[in-house]
Design a protein around this nucleic acid. Structure first.
Lengths: 235, 235
DNA sequence: TGAAGCTCCTATGTATACATAGAATGCTCG
DNA sequence: CGAGCATTCTATGTATACATAGGAGCTTCA
């Protein structure tokens, strides 16, 4: 089968995306969005037919998902989307604390104040954003991503950034659980403001402690949200 | 080509190792041992012929090495073994500090004293071990591995253990540099004893601080060793 | 002589055919 | 009727053929 441009190149960049890349992004997105719930079996033939690529690139995609920790290979019976138990979430936050506290400390030391001053203004407007329903929520999450990116850039350490990326991948699966809690999101925005202020001030210790507090609150909220949902294993 | 048992199954377990697994282990070992120095280009055809597997499993092996951070894919021109600059080493130790301090803290909290008491005895005998030349050195490194395993088991957190494994992978490439320094190895053994004592005592704070000191000393030694070798990029 | 264009070539990306291991299932025997 | 076993089937692991992109080198023109 030859290369076919299925999508109209309306948006400028028409990079010839490799099939393995497409398969990876689609599967990853579907796992993170819960479309493929935890425990779902991933059959090579079935998935390759569904996505529209052959088995070879699909295999490469699954290999990357395994490296990400989103998929696990069972001994003889194919692959499955990994589970996320409450214990797993606690364990994840344990690592997240270690990495993000350290990152906040370093960011406060090496930051470009202008970047975080701009972020500060945006987070000040977050409460109004959160009052705008679904679209505002989406923009709020984009804002969080911008904050993460700013920290990554300030940290300027590929190893640390990579470790944080791994944590954030799993976090994205959990994030959906807190969606229905606007009060928590407003509180989280305020906590982010504290961290940003500490980073702007160059106060490494305060940045780390504010991060610690934020993560503790975040974890408590997530665990409480799961307790409220008697659906058993977290999707 | 059918399956051929190249090696005599003298050792009991004759698990039918997959070709991709063999290729991965061999390449990984050769990179860690410096047989494949940083910057070496890895051509699929060439390497698959050398190792004796086809391109498909070799590709899977390289994908895993990329996930490990040992190999990087260049845009159009194949793959190469990643470089390890002095800056990279500093960055690696920055993450290592965050993770191992946290791990030491947790290990001190959740440890099984008996395990670390046994390790303590072995580390007490380390100086004599280090006087036995090459074989003693080898056994000393095995002892470090046992210590790491004990910490991993005490921590009991797959995410943290995984992050530590990534760091240790890169560390293995660096470790070769400190080989010729027995004085440093004896000092390192003493530092490990301090950490072990703190873990046995359940002193989380001391365990973290002792780890911090140990890593600071280790980094200083590694950087000094590189300065002494005018060979430029670290293999 | 230098730079630009073209051509060829190499190495990767993809598709597919084939072998095999492990599990589910049904059969048979006690 | 239950347990053990053979069979079959399915999904992965591997090998290989083919298309293509990107670069190196050569040629040609100004």
């Amino acid at each position: 089968m030859w290369f076919v441009y299925t999508e109209t190149p309306t948006s400028g960049t028409t990079a010839p995306v490799r099939a393995s890349e497409r398969a990876y992004r689609q599967l990853r997105g579907e796992i993170l969005d819960g479309i493929l719930p935890a425990g779902t079996g991933l059959l090579e033939i079935e998935q390759s037919a569904r996505i529209g690529v052959s088995r070879t690139p699909l295999r490469a995609a699954i290999a990357r998902l395994i490296a990400d920790g989103l998929v696990a290979g069972r001994p003889g019976r194919g692959f499955m989307v990994t589970e996320m138990s409450m214990d797993s979430i606690r364990e994840l936050y344990e690592v997240r604390r270690a990495l993000e506290e350290h990152a906040a400390r370093i960011a406060a030391d090496r930051r470009d104040p202008a970047v975080f001053l701009a972020l500060r203004d945006q987070f000040l407007a977050a409460p109004e954003l959160l009052a705008q329903g679904e679209t505002g929520l989406h923009r709020y999450y984009d804002l969080i991503d911008e904050f993460d990116d700013a920290v990554d850039e300030a940290v300027d350490n590929p190893f640390l950034v990579g470790a944080l990326a791994t944590v954030r991948t799993h976090l994205a699966r959990i994030r959906r659980l807190a969606r229905g809690n606007p009060a928590r999101l407003r509180a989280a925005a305020a906590e982010h403001l504290l961290i940003i202020d500490a980073i702007i001030a160059g106060d490494t210790s305060l940045a780390a402690h504010a991060t610690h507090v934020h993560l503790q609150q975040s974890l408590a909220n997530v665990l409480a949200a799961i307790q409220g949902q008697p659906t058993g294993p977290v999707a």
